[in-house]
């Protein structure tokens, strides 16, 4: 009988253990998990954009973890996310005018909240608020800032249109920026195939501010960086006459195809094919 008792108790323990682990897996490791917090105090922060920030993401000061994100909410009627940070009580000397920023660890990493200290005498207390915030940087915006691709010209003074013919526009699409010296001066209005000449006709809408562009300037389809989007670059020529509305850019350089580039590398710089309308410096391949 005693042996029977022992296995009955053991079986009961086993079943309880099994259900306990099931409860643990179901509640603590899934999306409905409750957030258990230790000895922390809560700080409210408002972000214009939280990006991919998740609950329980780390909060860091000088790159060292001091707490975690407690909750992310969107108050109805507001266009900013309410983020509650649970910060360890040990780190209670955070100035009130500190700046909370959403950073990304690495290019593809996770996002976290970084706090940069201000200079105020008053320290953050429980329920306090960090007024100064910087939202999550969207990758597109960052790339845009790097390569200027996102910053289309403001077009305040209206635009004038210029046509350019390319034998290959690559992935260029309407709305892509037109840049001169790396600065956006307009945008691509349309990309169409010419049914007769069998090439691509790109209409460029250039800001009227920039009306001093020589009419022998060259247009090229470039790519911003290795993985960036494509844009049209204007390389100014030396002609005394300026581009007017409806003009056509004669000198063009088509989009580089990766295959062409590799081919050029492999055959030691000699251009594999001469495309009509290719500008003289096309084979430099430095883009």
């Amino acid at each position: 009988m005693s042996q029977r008792k022992s296995y009955a108790v053991g079986t009961g323990l086993f079943i309880v253990l099994g259900f306990a682990t099931l409860a643990y897996l179901a509640t603590q490791t899934t999306s409905v998990a409750n957030v258990r917090l230790g000895d922390t105090y809560t700080v409210d922060v408002e972000f214009a954009n939280v990006g991919q920030l998740k609950e329980r993401a780390p909060v860091k000061v000088a790159g060292v973890r001091v707490g975690q994100v407690k909750s992310i909410d969107l108050a109805p009627g507001k266009e900013a996310a309410d983020v509650k940070l649970a910060i360890d009580k040990r780190f209670d000397k955070i100035p009130e005018d500190s700046v909370a920023t959403i950073f990304t660890s690495g290019l593809l990493g996770d996002q976290y909240v970084g706090i940069e200290f201000g200079h105020a005498r008053k320290m953050l207390a429980d329920g306090g608020r960090l007024a100064l915030t910087r939202p999550a940087q969207q990758l597109e915006e960052m790339l845009g800032k790097f390569f200027g691709a996102g910053g289309a010209a403001d077009n305040l003074g209206g635009t004038y249109t210029v046509k350019a013919r390319f034998s290959n526009v690559g992935a260029l699409s309407a709305g892509a920026p037109v840049k001169m010296a790396g600065v956006a001066i307009g945008s691509v209005a349309s990309v169409q195939a010419d049914p007769v000449k069998l090439d691509a006709v790109v209409t460029l809408a250039i800001d009227r501010k920039y009306d001093q562009i020589p009419d022998d300037s060259a247009a090229a389809v470039f790519t911003s960086g290795l993985i960036g989007s494509q844009y049209v670059a204007i390389q100014p020529g030396g002609s005394p006459d300026m581009l007017k509305d409806g003009d056509e850019l004669v000198l063009t350089q088509s989009a580089m195809q990766l295959e062409d580039l590799i081919g050029k590398f492999l055959v030691n710089g000699s251009p594999g094919e001469k495309k009509p309308g290719t500008s003289p410096d096309a084979s430099a391949g430095k883009q």
Binding site: Q28, T29, T30, S31, Q68
Partner: peptide, 14 residues
Amino acid sequence: NGTFWSNMIAAVEL
């Protein structure tokens, strides 16, 4: 530690 769990919690569905 937090990222380890938060990523898991965000990904796993009941």
